[in-house]
Every structure is written in structure tokens, then in C-alpha cells.
């Protein structure tokens, strides 16, 4: 339970972090809150030769609003986001499910997106809201839509030498309604199934986490109340539910139908 040896660099600014990432290539890892990476290093699931600590980069510390979006840079912790007074209603519902008080105090929003755990709440929210990931390498900047960013289980569109500078989440509009719920073994554990919903007029959008390797997205232009059970049943069977240590595929489908109904009712009432 002790990590393999690594060099450590505390980056003072983003260009230093990006140069070091560029020079070390795939052998380097960004260290943010360490709430996922620490466990992977201690269990030797990851053995990078260099850790680049980005948490002292002042320019990445503050949330801002820009062009109708909330911009959350890489050093913002989950707790700092949760404490925001005018927090996006979906994030206000989903963030308390992300780990524990103790892990949110250090874990970052961007770190959760970069880690891309299939059960994680923040990737699910980013996908539902059509957020964007702002990526930087030493020479280039690019922006990737949430739907294209998550590529597989803990696999993202990030290439060697790149880091997430910020994520952008569109601000909630007045005619939008949101709901979130999940089932896990205990509060704060990773979800077995998590579901988030958004309604805007007649359009209903649902994302499901914990089942496929990446957040699954479904959208209905209209969905009559009478058709909801069938729609949810189709959804449950269309996803790649599998048996594992935590739950059977059948239980996961059952959760999708039930949690799906709960969030749809909440955004429709």
C-alpha cells in the first residue's frame, strides 16, 4: 500500500505544468486533489515517474461566469463549488452525492471529469447539461463537448501532454427543470446506478451513470405520461448492464426503470 517511487513537481503556474507534462509525456501524471490518484498510486494501479502538482496554480483557483456559462478551473474543489450561493440547481442536487465531506474538501471538479469513473456524478451532470472541457497543452488549446470527451471506462479524449484547464457548464435557464438521484451501498459510495434528468418545454433529456462505461444520454422531443414505462424499459434494455461485484445486470435495469421514473416525475411536476 505504498506507491512506487515518483519525482514530484509543484507547478507555480500553468505554463510550468504544461512544459513538464510535455517533456515527460505519458510518464507524467497531473496531481490535483489526489482523491482518486492517491488510491491508484498507493495500490500501484498507476506508476507514473513524475507527479505534477497543479494545486498551487493561483490562476486556476476561482470560479467565474462567462458567456452564460459557469467556468470551473482545474484547482476548484468540489466543496468550493458546492458552497457557491447561486449554484446550478442540478449540481446542487448531485454534488452532495459525490464522495464525502472529507473527500470533497480536496477533490476537484476537473479531476473528477479527468478521472471519468463510469459511476461518477460530475461527468453525468456535464453530459446532461451539454458542458464543455477546455483542454490545454504547451502549444495548443482546444475545447471538447462533454459527449465527445468521455471515451470509455476511465478513458477520455485527453492526449499525452494535455491537461484540463477548466470545465464550462451552461447556466440554468428559467424554463429548465432538473432532477438527480442515485442508489449506492452507503451515502457517499460510488453509485450502482445514477440518473439525472432535465426538462425544457416538452423536451426531456436523461443521463444514466454506473451502467455503461460512459454517461448514457437519451432525449425525447415529447414523452406522454402513458409512454414513460415503455420508454424507460427500452432504455434499460438498450444499455450495457452487466453483472459485477456490486449488482446484477437485472438489478441495474430495475434501478434504471425506477430511478428514471422518479426523476422524470420530479422534472414534470
Amino acid at each position: 500500500m505504498k506507491p512506487a517511487p515518483f519525482d514530484y513537481l509543484r507547478a507555480d503556474d500553468i505554463s510550468a505544468a504544461l512544459s513538464a507534462l510535455h517533456d515527460a509525456g505519458e510518464d507524467a501524471r497531473v496531481l490535483a486533489g489526489g482523491q482518486s490518484l492517491g488510491a491508484m498510486l498507493n495500490m500501484r494501479l498507476a506508476k507514473p515517474s513524475l507527479l505534477i502538482d497543479i494545486m498551487h496554480i493561483e490562476a486556476l483557483g476561482a470560479i467565474r461566469e462567462e458567456k452564460a456559462a459557469l467556468v470551473i478551473p482545474a484547482c476548484v474543489t468540489q466543496e468550493a463549488l458546492l458552497r457557491r450561493s447561486d449554484l446550478h440547481p442540478l449540481l446542487a442536487k448531485a454534488l452532495p452525492w459525490t464522495g464525502h465531506v472529507q473527500t470533497r474538501a480536496r477533490g476537484t471538479v476537473c479531476g473528477s471529469i479527468a478521472h471519468a469513473d463510469p459511476s461518477a456524478e460530475l461527468p453525468l451532470c456535464l453530459a446532461l447539461l451539454g458542458g464543455e472541457v477546455s483542454i490545454r497543452s504547451r502549444r495548443k488549446r482546444r475545447t471538447v463537448q462533454a459527449a465527445d470527451f468521455f471515451r470509455g471506462m476511465m478513458l477520455t479524449d485527453l492526449r499525452p501532454g494535455e491537461m484540463i484547464e477548466a470545465v464550462r457548464i451552461p447556466l440554468a435557464r428559467k424554463n429548465q427543470r432538473f432532477a438527480f438521484t442515485e442508489i449506492g451501498r452507503r451515502h457517499g459510495d460510488f453509485a450502482i446506478v445514477a440518473v439525472a434528468a432535465m426538462r425544457e418545454g416538452d423536451t426531456l433529456r436523461l443521463t444514466v451513470g454506473g451502467v455503461n462505461d460512459t454517461p448514457a444520454i437519451r432525449e425525447w422531443a415529447t414523452l406522454d405520461t402513458a409512454d414513460i414505462p415503455d420508454a424507460l424499459n427500452d432504455l434499460a434494455w438498450s444499455l450495457d448492464a452487466r453483472d459485477d461485484l456490486h449488482a446484477t445486470a437485472r438489478y441495474r435495469r430495475d434501478l434504471m426503470r425506477n430511478l428514471g421514473r422518479i426523476v422524470i416525475e420530479e422534472v414534470s411536476s
Binding site: G34, G38, N42, L51, A105, R106
Partner: peptide, 16 residues
């Protein structure tokens, strides 16, 4: 507590 905030000390390295 690190700088006033709760933390798992097993998920931090001394140099941090």
C-alpha cells in the same frame, strides 16, 4: 486538517 480543510492524510504525500 490541512490549511483548515478536512483531508485524508493517506491520500496526500508529505512533499505536497
Amino acid at each position: 486538517r490541512i490549511d483548515g480543510a478536512l483531508a485524508r492524510s493517506c491520500l496526500a504525500y508529505a512533499v505536497q
